[in-house]
Simulated scan of single mutants.
Amino acid sequence: MNKRIPDLKQQLQQLVACPSVSATNPNLDMGNRGVVELLAAWLETLGFAVELMPLTGQPDKVNMIATLGQGDGGLILAGHTDTVPYDDGKWQSDPFKLDERDNRFYGLGSTDMKGFFPLAIEAAKSFIDKPLQQPLIILATADEETSMAGARALVEAGRPRARCAVVGEPTGLQPIRMHKGVMMEAVRITGQSGHSSNPALGANALEAMHGAIGELLKLRAEWQSRYNNPGFAVPVPTMNLGCIHGGDNPNRICGHVELQFDVRPLPGMALDDLRAELDQRLHASVTDRKFTLDYAPLFRGTEAFEQDANSELVKTAEKLTGHSAGSVAFGTEAPYFKSMGIDTIVLGPGDIDQAHQPDEYLGLERIEPMVEVLRGLIAKFCL
């Protein structure tokens, strides 16, 4: 078998050059099939058994499961293949052309998180001809940046199965065993428009929303009193009132208003329970029959994540990296793997402050240390 594939830099060049923007705006949204087909070709050349799993009704959005070896245990090296949109004109170089300068690789997705895949492949190459006792799985997902649809599809399929998983999001080479969840919600109140000269001619939805906002702030304070985890830089759950839109003119009674907000829950705060409480409290805040209130999630949300600090995976990652496992505020696909009974950590070479930014880059000094960590994890859980 010809096992020659592009080198690490060439792989990243090709991945960055293949646009895979995931966005809620349909004019910006695109598929990731081109990216996973590149990965599939390289991994098949190395002897992996590769399966592509298109999302239902979205043939251009695809998960990839590439497996070396057999069995139900082993290790998953996982990452998403989509990127966020980019700020056109704010990059010093073409975001789709890998640019090496200042001891960095610049390019869209270089750190979040296409750059993880060439490193995972480089680590895997050291084990191609070794007798694996448990499988090594390289997993690529679709739509992490928007809906988490790729990770959800894997959970629904119950695949892949493994003992451990590493999600290669940017953590600066520190193993992460906890992160907060995320909910994005909307509350809509409809009243009755009318001439502002006589309030009796309508029902002002903005005034009703004032009561709903007050109830949200009260609930936020209760949650922050009820829940606290000192393992996080911000140790309490947060609620951010993000945007509000209502009415159309100063001299008209506001007939409709919508508030969108997010909640970042701690581990142990189930999204279904939080939404039930939100629904009850919001409806109780607006009792006047002149108004109707509708509350609904903007997307399904992602649960908070926590891996046992004493698990073998956490202890191994701490030993290999020289860093104690910590927490982050951003969300990942880790809770989806955890929900399938897979011990999971988040660990990657990039820095989160580079993610979603113009001139995103991956520092070259991070590459070899990350490859060595991955080799150590593969040796521990697959040999």
Rank of each mutant, 00 (worst) to 15 (best):
N2F: 07
K9T: 12
Q10L: 12
Q13C: 15
V16Y: 01
T24R: 13
P26F: 04
N27Y: 06
D29S: 12
N32L: 09
N32A: 08
A40K: 15
W42E: 08
E44Y: 06
F48W: 05
Q58C: 13
I65C: 00
T67S: 11
V84F: 06
P85V: 12
D87M: 09
K90W: 11
P95L: 02
F96P: 09
K97F: 07
L98F: 03
R101G: 10
N103K: 10
K114I: 02
F116V: 00
F116A: 02
A120P: 00
A123D: 09
F127Y: 07
I128M: 08
D129E: 14
K130N: 09
P131K: 12
Q133Y: 06
I137G: 01
E144S: 06
E144M: 05
E144C: 07
E145G: 03
M148P: 10
R161P: 03
V166E: 02
P170S: 06
I176D: 01
K180D: 09
A186G: 08
G191N: 03
Q192C: 06
S193I: 06
H195K: 02
S196R: 05
H210Y: 07
I213F: 11
L216W: 04
L217D: 13
L219C: 09
R220P: 12
A221Q: 15
A221C: 11
Q224F: 09
Q224T: 08
P230F: 08
G242L: 12
I253L: 01
P267Q: 04
L271K: 03
L274H: 01
A284E: 13
S285M: 11
F291D: 02
E312G: 12
V314L: 12
K315N: 10
T316F: 08
L320F: 10
T321Q: 10
G322H: 10
S324W: 14
S327G: 03
F330S: 04
T332L: 07
E333H: 02
Y336T: 02
I345C: 01
D351G: 04
D353C: 14
D353W: 08
A355G: 07
G363A: 15
L374K: 06
L374D: 09
A379P: 01
